[in-house]
Simulated scan of single mutants.
Amino acid sequence: MKIRVSNLDKKYTKKGDFILKNINLELNNGIYGLIGPNGVGKTTFLHVLLGILPMTAGEIICDNDIKFASDEFYDLVGYLPQYPKFYKHFTAN
């Protein structure tokens, strides 16, 4: 699968500032990591890429006619945050 990100912007309306501005990249099959200082938009980018947050502008296209943020898309993409959050009613045995 190939994911192409074109002219991606994310703006927070409360502050009015862009956290992501004009992001352009292409991701092919593989494992990727984002490295950078706190507050530069790594988590925001991942949340937009996964459809958790809406983008302000831009486009995310998946090849093979896979619709972005569809069930088929989520079947192919994995995400493990550094500090995962769980539902309160989940328990471990």
Score class of each variant (00 low, 15 high):
residue 1 M to L: 13
residue 1 M to N: 07
residue 2 K to Q: 13
residue 5 V to E: 02
residue 5 V to Y: 02
residue 6 S to M: 13
residue 7 N to W: 03
residue 7 N to I: 08
residue 7 N to D: 15
residue 8 L to N: 06
residue 9 D to L: 07
residue 9 D to H: 15
residue 9 D to V: 00
residue 10 K to T: 03
residue 10 K to H: 09
residue 10 K to A: 05
residue 11 K to E: 04
residue 12 Y to A: 02
residue 12 Y to M: 00
residue 12 Y to F: 15
residue 12 Y to D: 01
residue 13 T to H: 10
residue 13 T to Y: 10
residue 13 T to K: 12
residue 16 G to M: 07
residue 16 G to P: 02
residue 16 G to R: 00
residue 17 D to H: 15
residue 19 I to V: 15
residue 19 I to G: 03
residue 20 L to K: 02
residue 20 L to C: 03
residue 21 K to D: 08
residue 21 K to T: 07
residue 21 K to F: 08
residue 23 I to V: 11
residue 23 I to G: 01
residue 24 N to I: 01
residue 25 L to T: 11
residue 27 L to A: 00
residue 28 N to K: 14
residue 29 N to A: 09
residue 30 G to Y: 08
residue 32 Y to T: 04
residue 32 Y to L: 00
residue 32 Y to E: 03
residue 32 Y to Q: 03
residue 33 G to N: 02
residue 35 I to R: 06
residue 35 I to N: 00
residue 36 G to F: 03
residue 36 G to W: 02
residue 36 G to N: 04
residue 37 P to Q: 11
residue 38 N to A: 05
residue 38 N to M: 02
residue 40 V to I: 15
residue 40 V to G: 00
residue 41 G to V: 05
residue 42 K to A: 04
residue 44 T to L: 02
residue 46 L to E: 07
residue 46 L to Y: 06
residue 46 L to W: 06
residue 46 L to R: 01
residue 48 V to P: 04
residue 48 V to M: 00
residue 49 L to I: 10
residue 50 L to V: 12
residue 50 L to Y: 11
residue 51 G to Q: 13
residue 51 G to H: 13
residue 51 G to D: 13
residue 52 I to K: 06
residue 53 L to H: 14
residue 56 T to S: 15
residue 56 T to K: 10
residue 56 T to L: 08
residue 57 A to H: 14
residue 57 A to S: 15
residue 58 G to R: 03
residue 59 E to H: 09
residue 59 E to Q: 15
residue 60 I to M: 04
residue 60 I to H: 04
residue 61 I to D: 03
residue 63 D to R: 08
residue 64 N to P: 01
residue 64 N to A: 10
residue 64 N to K: 15
residue 66 I to H: 00
residue 67 K to A: 15
residue 68 F to T: 15
residue 69 A to W: 12
residue 70 S to I: 11
residue 70 S to P: 12
residue 72 E to T: 14
residue 73 F to N: 06
residue 76 L to A: 11
residue 76 L to P: 02
residue 76 L to F: 05
residue 77 V to W: 09
residue 77 V to S: 02
residue 81 P to N: 06
residue 81 P to V: 01
residue 82 Q to R: 05
residue 82 Q to F: 08
residue 82 Q to S: 06
residue 84 P to F: 11
residue 85 K to H: 12
residue 86 F to L: 15
residue 88 K to E: 14
residue 88 K to I: 12
residue 90 F to R: 11
residue 90 F to A: 09
residue 90 F to Y: 14
residue 91 T to C: 07
residue 93 N to C: 10
residue 93 N to Q: 13
residue 93 N to T: 14
